[in-house]
Computed example of a mutant assay.
Amino acid sequence: MSVHTHERPPQPTAGDAALDAQAVTAPTVADVRALSDAMRALFMQAKNRHRAMEKTPEHGRISVLFVLGKVGPMRASALAKEAQLDLSTVSRHLRVLEEEGYVVKTADPDDKRAFQVGVTERGHDFVERFWCERATAIRDALAAWPADDVHALTKLLDRFVRDTEGCF
């Protein structure tokens, strides 16, 4: 049985976490510009790395393999759409990836006349090695950072992505 009283709930006082939370001020335009500058620098690093990778013959094949590894088996036409490539390009990449043992074709369960393509164990191993090398490089670059800072940045980036959906 609940008892109703007419007592007021305790009011926050100076130094109280509830009051401190209310005192948070929104970022200024200068704050957002500084964040935008930092993001622009990060995006330029990523773009330059991507450009360097584009010059390698396996770049397109790697992109196709990553999509398949993330999404799972699918028809070549769906893969082309997901990878934002034309079907002839995807077909060419799939041919090489199949010859190298990274992907395998199987009958489409919904239409036995069509086929799906999926990643083989060798293909999964390749993708895993790639991401491990990338993670190791980033870990090495952040070696002087305390783990708590990396965790905080991760948490804030996740929040940033959620809160800014549709802004870019």
Rank of each mutant, 00 (worst) to 15 (best):
K70D: 15
A147C: 05
Q22M: 10
T56C: 00
D20I: 07
L19K: 03
V127F: 03
T154N: 15
I62C: 00
A78R: 13
D158E: 13
K81Q: 15
G166L: 14
R122M: 09
D108E: 07
T25R: 13
L65W: 03
T120N: 00
R61S: 04
L87E: 14
V96E: 08
L85I: 01
S36G: 11
V90P: 00
H50Y: 04
A18Q: 14
A107Q: 14
N48F: 11
V3G: 05
D163I: 10
P12T: 04
A152R: 06
L97P: 00
K112Q: 13
A83M: 07
G15Q: 05
W145R: 14
A52H: 04
S36H: 07
D108M: 09
V24T: 07
T13K: 13
Q116H: 06
G166Y: 10
V103Q: 01
W145P: 02
D110P: 00
H151M: 13
F130Y: 11
A41F: 06
P27S: 00
D37Y: 08
L97N: 09
T136D: 15
D110N: 12
V150A: 05
A147P: 14
L68V: 11
R40N: 07
G118S: 13
A143S: 06
P9N: 10
Q116S: 01
A76C: 08
R162N: 11
A21E: 08
E165Y: 11
